[in-house]
Design a protein around this nucleic acid. Structure first.
Length: 344
DNA sequence: TTCCGACAGTGGGGTCGCAAT
DNA sequence: ATTGCGACCCCACTATCGGAA
């Protein structure tokens, strides 16, 4: 049998849950926060490829035995490589050191510290046959017959029925969200479309603008990003990250107008902002409050995947407390609005 | 005509490796 | 030894354009 063809992973589009009348057309899977990987099992050997078709096999030796768990077939599988933290939740941060590591000795250390699990959710090819034209339901059935779950790999369940229940479960489990997939859809390699829709559990916070960085390219001469802060118990303005997306051109212009008269020579932050950010920063009096949507906080207390929602002129900067980031906002009541997760 | 998909280009938090300082 | 930078990972988002509806 011939060499396996190369596939590019199909991507999900960010969106909202389908309306209830269409629930029977969709299936929901938990969204695993890790790195995408296509697994090529050929002649009993595993090859793992990243989203951009880089060979990352050497970084994940604990997955090699998976080659013996597909009934001796040559297959191409699609899934997510995930590292779990002590609480049993997927942790991108715990996975990060592995992603670029190729040195066998260092990899071995990392495997021992934080082993990964391959969450398999699709099958693209079996022996000489591409199965991407099979509908999702049939590929799932094939996948579950094909793969024998192991300690370091599994085929997590696909939920039928009300996807809202799956989304609620994802939130309760501290997961990123769900991916809903059309049960009659083909696998479209390398494409991003609504037949795979990711629905995420976002949080919202209010932040104080403490400065901004000039942009580049078409953002040249304008705001590139905003430096954000929140006050701690001692009244110090702590740096919580940047936001550089979510603005329309008009919003950028309006912000520029509002920030210009607030400019000041030194940083308003009560603790040093990392040098690489402070270098070309323009500081402002911390008077403006805005709202930011984000996926989660990093280990350093920075916003991950932040996006700007708009100014909050109704808020006082002094009300913006860092404590709101770490407590008092359990996942689930952290300011989600219905529009985030439910189709309108 | 309007709408949608794909793309390019901006921005974020990270890690690692390597060249320049 | 430190710093800067690009290559990879994760990603959100806006603006644009051409073709589908």
């Amino acid at each position: 049998m011939g060499r396996l063809p190369t596939y590019h992973p199909m991507l999900a589009q960010l969106g909202t849950l389908p309306p209830p009348a269409q629930h029977h057309l969709w299936s929901a899977e938990m969204k695993w926060d890790g790195v995408r990987g296509l697994a090529y099992v050929e002649a009993g050997a595993l090859r793992l490829m990243s989203r951009n078709s880089k060979d990352v096999t050497l970084a994940y030796p604990e997955l090699y035995p998976m080659a013996g768990a597909v009934g001796g077939r040559d297959v191409v599988l699609d899934g997510e490589i995930v590292a779990f933290d002590d609480a049993g939740r997927p942790s991108f941060g715990a996975l990060a050191p592995r992603m670029h590591q190729r040195s066998p000795a260092k990899v071995a250390e990392l495997v021992k510290a934080v082993p990964v699990t391959y969450m398999i959710f699709d099958v693209l090819h079996v022996d000489d046959r591409s199965v991407v034209r099979l509908p999702y339901d049939e590929r799932r059935e094939l996948l579950e017959r094909l793969v024998t779950p192991g300690f370091r790999w599994q085929t997590p369940v696909s939920f039928r029925g009300d996807p809202r229940a799956a989304l609620d479960a994802s939130r309760a489990l501290g997961l990123e969200g769900v991916v809903v997939k059309r049960r009659d859809s083909h696998y479209r390699p390398g494409r991003r479309g609504p037949e795979w829709t990711k629905v995420k559990n976002f949080s919202h916070i209010e932040v104080v603008i403490g400065g901004w960085k000039p942009g580049a390219g078409r953002r040249g001469g304008r705001i590139g990003s905003l430096l954000l802060g929140a006050y701690d118990q001692g009244g110090r303005l702590l740096y919580v990250g940047h936001v550089g997306t979510g603005f329309t051109d008009a919003m950028l212009e309006a912000l520029h107008q509002e920030l210009a008269p607030l400019e000041r020579p030194g940083s308003p932050f009560g603790v040093p902002v990392p040098r690489e950010y402070a270098r070309d920063a323009r500081w402002v009096e911390p008077r403006l409050v805005g709202e930011v949507r984000y996926a989660e906080l990093t280990g350093d207390g920075r916003l991950r995947h932040p996006s700007w929602r708009g100014l909050r002129p109704d808020r006082e900067p002094a009300e913006v407390r860092i404590g709101d980031l770490f407590s008092g906002h359990p996942a689930g009541r952290s300011g989600r609005s219905p529009g985030d997760t439910v189709a309108g």
